[in-house]
Amino acid sequence: MTASASKATSEKTIVRPYGDTAGDGMVQMSFTLPLPHDKKAEGAALQLAKKMGIDPAMVVHAKAMGPDFTFFVVYGSVQHLVDLRDVHVIERDYPLLSPKEVNSVVKKVMRRPLVVVGACIGTDAHTVGIDAILNIKGFAGEKGLEYYSELTVVNLGAQVSVPDLVEQARIHKADAVLVSQVVTQRDAHLHNTREMSAAFREAFPAERRPLLVIGGPRFDESMTGELGVDRIFGKGTTPGEVASYLVHALLAERKTVKRS
């Protein structure tokens, strides 16, 4: 049964949400309307649900939050269909290596440690992301990059200015620069990233520029071109993934260059 079910899944192209019956389209959502709680407010909630393609919709919970606001929980069947042929995502395009494999590739190909400089830039003081990737402590049971004997890690910490980051990258001869951005208020993470990538482009000739890697919970991984960076990592990225990517991007490229 499992085999046939998974086969069916792999051939599916059109899907709807699943409540408890195939094809029922059931979803749940919650939201607040700036209205006092009365029958009209519940009607407004239903109208919104309908406009969102949820039909029939049920207001299963409505609660006044003070005199001016009402909180709703709505269940219903969504009429929209998802066509998987139109779904495009960034799949991991590099092999996942163990720390041992990363070290041995670096040793063999570079014959020196690979230098990684990391920082939180701008006013962002949330080092949790960069620390999860760099600190030996690591994340999700994986040790951070400091644990890798063939990687030299320079963690500049929080609130590093872009000129300082460029300077430190130059001083340490960084092969890769890792930047973490958590604060997203007024799109600070996007502005800061653009500023950072522009500064590196200005400061380094293209072939000498370190690999620019950005990470944070609210980035769209497909925005590399727009932000001028080589790779974006989203929520839940582990140190092993980053290390594997660095090796892939820096060394696979180097091999091709050498061959040509």
Binding site: S30, F31, T32, K63, M65, F69, F71, P217
Partner: peptide
């Protein structure tokens, strides 16, 4: 937490 700065409803809940 870790998603958005709290909404009115988040605080109420």
């Amino acid at each position: 937490e870790a998603v958005v700065t709290p909404w009115l409803s988040d605080r109420d809940l």
